[in-house]
């Protein structure tokens, strides 16, 4: 894969859901390029196609039409096993619902992407897990189960899991949606800090308050990108609040 070009390139991306009676155009002609180190927020009203776009970008769904490249490699025609491999190596997910596995410990949850990568020795995996958990401030909760953590702590663990495989891009779907404002703020600051260290982020949110952390905002409406704009530098530091 090309390491110097865009992380993601999307051209003419279309997604149509068909049932026996209805044809729903979730995305239509999406054009999007994400360069390394970018922090992009996708915003828009419910049903505009944000999550569908994120799912396609994360290779959880396949587009109906269009081109999609990750680090220069076309991925729209990959089979399920190849998509799983690309997902494992290039994409890290952070979800609104945390999506930690309840009967695995924090350490085991974070270790999962490395387990699926296959070739990493157990000791090395555990070292990486501990390092990344320290990075998100959860190094002291290795043996805990998700049920024993607060929502904010669970999301930190989820971020650690997304980071541990050193993916090309982090995809975050409403990462603060299930958190109180204080925990949400802390998670956003963590993501921002990661971005500062060079991580590429694509975050879906409907909350303009958190959009201030991003450097680029795309707005979706009825499955189309209606606006794609850089945010102003000061908006990050001025702490814009929700209108």
């Amino acid at each position: 894969m090309n390491a110097t070009g865009p992380v993601i390139e999307v051209k003419g991306l279309t997604k149509v859901y068909r049932t026996e009676e209805v044809e729903t155009h979730a995305l239509t002609g999406i054009e999007l390029t994400i360069d390394p180190g970018e922090y992009i927020v996708a915003m828009g009203p419910s049903g505009c196609g944000k999550t569908t776009l994120l799912s396609i970008l994360g290779l959880l769904e396949t587009p109906t039409a269009g081109e999609y490249r990750i680090t220069g490699t076309p991925v729209e025609t990959l089979n399920a096993a190849e998509r799983a491999r690309v997902r494992n190596r290039h994409i890290g997910f952070v979800f609104q619902a945390f999506n930690l596995i309840g009967d695995l410990t924090v350490e085991e949850n974070v270790e999962l992407p490395l387990v699926y990568r296959g070739s990493i020795p157990r000791a090395e995996r555990r070292d990486k897990v501990r390092t990344v958990l320290e990075e998100v401030g959860m190094g002291h909760r290795l043996r805990h189960y998700p049920g024993q953590l607060s929502g904010g702590q669970q999301q930190r663990v989820a971020i650690a899991r997304a980071l541990v495989g050193e993916p090309s891009i982090l995809l975050a779907d409403e990462p603060t949606g299930n958190l109180d404002s204080k925990s949400g703020e802390a998670v956003m600051e963590l993501l921002a800090a990661l971005h500062e260290k060079g991580a590429t982020l694509f975050m879906v949110t409907h909350d303009p308050h958190y959009a201030r952390f991003a450097r680029r905002i795309i707005r979706l409406m009825d499955g189309q990108i209606v606006d794609d704009a850089e945010t102003q530098e000061e908006s990050f530091s001025s702490g814009l609040t929700h209108p």
């Binding site: 959880l60 799983a84 494992n88 999506n99 309840g102 999962l112 990568r117």
Partner: peptide
């Protein structure tokens, strides 16, 4: 199913 979905998201192949 939820667990399978999570594992899929972090790179589990259909075979696994």
């Amino acid at each position: 199913r939820q667990e399978y979905a999570i594992r899929t998201a972090v790179g589990a192949s259909p075979t696994s």
